[in-house]
Design a protein around this nucleic acid. Sequence first.
RNA 1: GGAGGGGUGGCUGAGCGGUCGAAAGCACUGGUCUUGAAAACCAGCGAAGCUGUCAAAGCUUCCCAGGGUUCGAAUCCCUGCCCCUCCGCCA
Length: 434
Amino acid sequence: MLDVKLLRQQPDIFAQCLKVKNYVLDVNEFLFLEAERKAAQTETERLQRERNARSKRIGAAKARGEDIAPLVAEVGDLGARLDAAKERLGQVQARLHDFLQQIPNLPDASVPEGRDEADNVEIRAWGRIPKFNFEPLDHVDLGVAGALDFAAAAKVSGARFVVMKGAVARLHRALTQFMLDIHVAEHGYTEVYAPYLVNSASLYGTGQLPKFAEDHFTVEGGELHLIPTGEVPVTNLYRDVILGAETLPIRHVCHTPCFRSEAGSYGKDTRGMIRQHQFEKVELVQVVAPDASWEGLEELTAHAEAILRRLELPYRAVVLCGGDLGFAAAKTIDLEVWLPGQGRYREISSCSNFLDFQARRMMARFRDPDRGAIDYVHTLNGSGLAIGRTLVAVLENFQDGAGRIHVPDALRPYMGGVATLDLSAGLGLSPPAS
RNA sequence: GGAGGGGUGGCUGAGCGGUCGAAAGCACUGGUCUUGAAAACCAGCGAAGCUGUCAAAGCUUCCCAGGGUUCGAAUCCCUGCCCCUCCGCCA
């Protein structure tokens, strides 16, 4: 949600900024609704004031033991007029609210112009892209002996699901634990366990509603929704909260499954586990004072990058262009990992600064001791990292051409010391030491 | 699933249908006192929005949410949500 007061003052400047996000702000519609709102609100408040004054006089007269009948008669149709005014105000406010809810966040001035992901700008790259003396397989082929079983998942559930078995299932678990441990022990995040089903208010708070209702799953007959990302339950912890300044910055790490309907992505990434209805993610969330959010974005991005570096996975960081930027974000840095099976970089983390956009929607505030005032916090989040895609990256980058996967050093303690996974043996389970 | 109790300001907690946005205490902020601190005492202290160029000032709304009764609702009625206690079931 944007600052309405600022929007009123300079709607044209807002419209100009939103063009970078390919959003057309209907300034005339806004000005019309604002004029309506103002008229309706002043009229309603005027009638309320009159009613209050009259009621107060009746109360006073009654207290003095006087006959209140004439005073009551005098009220006349005030109630009816007030009801009508309230009705009108309610309607225009609802329209205005809807209008404002649909407007995306303003992109930061540093966000490059552009239409789609082809226009994103690389800001750094790390690691060496592996050279193989064989044709690298993608994860689907690497797991074909049974460790990654897409057919079984299709039978049990449908398309866009996976069943992992044996060593790969363990690798998946190991990655999760590894990431959580690093973020907690070394990056100063507090671990959080949160619900996977949330109410609509939470989805409004972080901006998944009202515009993107088709992107997530809603439980039939209920008002609960499967979370599309851990961002939703974790950021909403601070909905309707006024924080003490001393509690900032807040850093949370949370491992959750994520559920996405992937409506509108038919035919896209249908092979393998790049785009699934269900995947796991370790999410980083920060709640900070307004003057600390840009620093926070750099920091949070570096925390996500640290995981890739320790896993020795080559990646690059790109700044999303206006056209590719999400609804609520002012700026987003994507981390893209190299996938030999596809011969290209793929998104594995998305780190965003939302400024006060989410905070405004969810009334997440803090008490600023310097000014003695209450102000909105700034919120940030990023994947640290998406587990499924990290698994794919490990399998594809560390294959040896003979169906074996080299386990990166950092992960071995989480794999019971195992250095190599043999996927050719079916489930990739090492034969028992006999 | 059954029975009962309850949702009031940062917290605890009063509240009669009519100067109640709401007693009191705690916490917090400022002051007096003190070498300093504590204690004591004095004062202040909820949020959102609107009108106003700014400011001064004024107004409206908010006592879980949504309806209703009434000239007037924190207070009465209905519905929903949430919490607590006991019983049952249960990972």
